[in-house]
Simulated scan of single mutants.
Amino acid sequence: MSVLLEFAMFPTDKGESVSPYVSRVIELIRDSGCDYQLTPMGTIIETDTLSQALALVEAAYATLEQAGCSRVYSSLNLDIRKGKDNRMQGKVASIRARIGDINS
Rank of each mutant, 00 (worst) to 15 (best):
M1S: 13
M1G: 07
S2K: 09
S2F: 04
S2P: 00
V3I: 06
V3G: 00
L4A: 14
L4D: 12
L5C: 15
E6Y: 04
E6I: 06
F7A: 04
F7N: 04
F7W: 07
A8C: 04
M9D: 02
M9V: 03
M9L: 12
F10N: 02
P11E: 04
P11H: 05
P11T: 03
T12Q: 08
T12G: 11
D13V: 08
D13F: 12
D13P: 10
K14I: 10
E16N: 08
E16R: 10
E16Q: 11
V18D: 12
V18C: 10
S19M: 13
S19Y: 09
P20L: 14
P20N: 12
Y21Q: 03
S23A: 15
S23C: 11
R24I: 05
R24H: 07
V25Q: 03
V25L: 06
L28M: 12
L28S: 06
I29Y: 00
R30T: 05
D31S: 15
S32F: 00
C34K: 10
C34L: 13
D35A: 13
Y36C: 09
Q37H: 09
L38H: 06
L38C: 04
P40L: 10
P40R: 06
M41K: 08
G42R: 06
T43Y: 01
I45D: 02
I45Q: 03
I45G: 02
D48A: 13
D48H: 11
T49G: 08
T49N: 09
S51G: 03
Q52C: 03
Q52K: 10
L54H: 01
L54C: 00
L56S: 01
L56R: 00
A59S: 14
A59L: 12
A60N: 00
A62C: 05
T63Q: 13
L64M: 04
L64H: 02
E65L: 12
C69E: 08
S70Y: 06
S70L: 12
R71H: 04
R71D: 03
V72L: 12
V72Y: 12
Y73W: 10
S74V: 10
S74K: 04
S75K: 15
L76D: 14
L78C: 08
I80Q: 08
R81V: 06
K82H: 14
G83E: 03
G83K: 04
K84M: 09
K84I: 08
D85H: 11
N86W: 07
N86K: 15
N86D: 15
N86F: 14
N86A: 15
R87W: 01
M88I: 12
M88N: 03
Q89R: 14
G90I: 08
V92T: 05
V92F: 07
R96Q: 13
A97D: 13
A97H: 13
I99V: 01
I99N: 01
I99K: 03
G100N: 01
G100A: 03
G100P: 03
D101M: 05
D101G: 03
D101F: 02
N103W: 10
N103V: 04
S104D: 14
